[in-house]
Design a protein around this nucleic acid. Structure first.
Lengths: 157, 157
DNA sequence: CTGCAAGTTAAACCATGGTTCAACTCAAGG
DNA sequence: CCTTGAGTTGAACCATGGTTTAACTTGCAG
């Protein structure tokens, strides 16, 4: 009975809406078997993948990068705790770099407040030399979403 | 001659594309007079507003919030350095809060790497109690965009 | 006065991360 | 067998922050 999960069950257990799960599947982040009637059935390992996805999103990683990371997991055997830890360590480094940049940004802002500049050209903030991430649009940083624990809606009405 | 700027001039001096400047105007972030022929002419104070906009974006503030902040500037007189400083101080506090949350996130991630959990429910990361920002989609954090200094393109070819 | 660069508009498009909808189909209980 | 809830699909839609394009108009130099 607990062999595989329906999309509704995975949604309930993970707190992620079915529409989002289908979206993740479309992007290649998770996988599902199909029943004879074409319905999704998830292996329980997918629960862990979903957890990894949500945690990574918290860290500010894009779904595309998360996909790449998940692709790097061993295909043949079930990922171990240290497989997951390896991925998390990479995220940790990104997070550290991000914190470093934000801290620098704050310090620059502090000196800007002091000098009252805001006059293009001279301002450190205005002409940042860092240029780390970027990537055009994308790379949202969420830092927790407001109340979406037990919602996991499946069409209202 | 240096009384007002055309959109091309403002674009060149600020490094912001004309299309973006029109977009900012549409959102009510900047203003422009019009010539008899309907072309925009910017007062030089707009340069400073654009600088404030770009700096605020670096800090991770949305255009809507930036608009609200700019609206709070005195309408009758030209904003002084301390007017700008007041706004910047608010951003600084946000930045600090953001840094605090990111640091907590990193520490949580550290302990997660150690315990190898990633098992929904138990995980601090997965069930964040912070819930500060959020606001659904939006609130991009850019931390510097890769090479876009002297581009300010005005239709290629 | 001509000619060209730079300006104008609205509307369409891009990416990201999804949600919502219409129109069905499946699975399981009674 | 029939109903009902849950599942299926593709397409359209939302927000954010813009860019691109088409089709014209202005402004200025020569």
């Amino acid at each position: 009975m607990h062999e595989s999960l329906t999309i509704g069950q995975l949604s309930d257990r993970s707190g992620v809406a079915p529409s989002a799960l289908r979206y993740y599947e479309r992007l290649g982040l998770i996988r599902a078997e199909r029943t004879g009637g074409n319905q999704r059935r998830y292996a329980r390992v997918e629960l862990r993948r979903v957890a990894f996805i949500r945690i990574s999103q918290q860290v500010g990683i894009s779904l595309e990068e998360i996909r790449a990371a998940l692709d790097s997991l061993p295909a043949s055997r079930t990922p171990t705790a240290s497989d997951w830890a390896r991925l998390s360590t990479t995220w940790r480094e990104r997070l550290n770099e991000r914190i470093r940049l934000m801290t620098k940004l704050r310090d620059d802002l502090d000196s800007c407040i002091g000098c009252g500049c805001l006059s293009l050209q001279r301002c450190t903030l205005y002409n940042p030399g860092d240029t780390l991430a970027g990537e055009g649009p994308g790379a949202r940083l969420m830092l927790s979403r407001a109340g979406d624990e037990a919602e996991a809606g499946v069409t209202p009405s």
